[in-house]
């Protein structure tokens, strides 16, 4: 029995050691929109090279879900939202610092390579299986805004597309996945989501279906932090809008803010 007690104490000591060990590096937790996945992984690497004293942790999901988590008090330090609306939601209850636009993107139609679907009108053809992100998801909101651009009231384009809608995905990457698997005939996602994927092609939206570009905004969630951590978060935000950060975003297909 004493042996068990010793073991228990050893385990506790080890656990205490773990928490102590992490003190040398400051952790910057970044909640980022799903569409930023590859770009922000690259930014993380570049940032950590420049700031070895910081450890960037990335958490990707639909911006609307990240916003809800932050409203529930999730420990994200930096929020990179695909839609200013979601940052506004968080800002209504938690103080934001260093808020700024860092990139833009555009909604396009995503189809499997070689698809006969060419325009928005084809999405409304009876029998097409269309996948969108949910209405609360930034990509879903932008897509529905674009569909509202229908010039003639008599032609209910959005109604036609909604009839073909088979799923409301919870983030834009899930939309792309359903198209890549061939389960859906088309989806609407960001141009950057298709970049370099040989299985997918994009169809640009043409007027009158163009909407203003998707705006990506960053901010530090400033409440309840030590000054040092807040500063670290601001440094990360600075880095994303610095020439290096902007070059990485551009290389991943994002437009300037």
């Amino acid at each position: 029995m004493p042996r068990t007690l010793t073991l228990l104490l050893l385990v506790l000591a080890a656990l205490a050691g773990c928490t102590r060990g992490g003190q040398t590096q400051q952790t910057i937790t970044v909640f980022a929109a799903a569409s930023l996945t590859e770009a922000f992984r690259a930014i993380e690497r570049a940032y950590e090279l420049e700031h070895p004293e910081h450890d960037v942790e990335l958490n990707f999901a639909g911006s609307q879900l990240l916003a809800t988590q932050l409203l529930e008090g999730a420990p994200g330090l930096v929020f990179a939202s695909a839609d200013p609306v979601q940052l506004d939601r968080v800002g209504a209850e938690r103080p934001l610092a260093s808020r700024r636009g860092v990139a833009t993107n555009r909604i396009v139609i995503v189809v499997p390579a070689g698809s006969a679907i060419m325009t928005v009108w084809d999405l409304a053809d009876p029998g097409r299986r269309v996948v969108l992100a949910g209405e609360a998801v930034p990509a879903g909101r932008y897509a529905r805004l674009a569909l509202l651009g229908s010039p003639l009231d008599s032609v209910d384009l959005r109604g036609g597309v909604e009839r073909n809608l088979v799923s409301n995905e919870t983030d834009v990457r899930a939309v792309v996945a359903k198209v890549r698997l061939g389960e859906a005939d088309a989806g609407m996602a960001y141009a950057t989501d298709v970049l370099g994927d040989p299985q997918l092609e994009l169809r640009e939206l043409s007027p009158p279906f163009t909407v203003e570009p998707a705006r990506y905004e960053l901010a530090v969630i400033a409440d309840g932090r030590e000054q040092a951590l807040r500063d670290a978060g601001m440094q990360f935000v600075e880095f994303v809008s610095s020439p290096t950060g902007q070059a990485i975003l551009a290389a991943h297909g994002f437009g300037p803010p």
Binding site: G62, Q64, L65, L71, V131, A136, S167, N168, T170, K178
Partner: peptide, 27 residues
């Protein structure tokens, strides 16, 4: 379900999917 059947009200959106969707906007 969400992977194989997707998420569409009345067709594949069962209660757990509805909870997850609601969580995103109206917690």
């Amino acid at each position: 379900t969400i992977t194989f059947a997707g998420n569409f009200r009345g067709r594949t959106q069962t209660m757990p999917l509805a909870v997850y969707e609601a969580l995103q906007t109206d917690h």
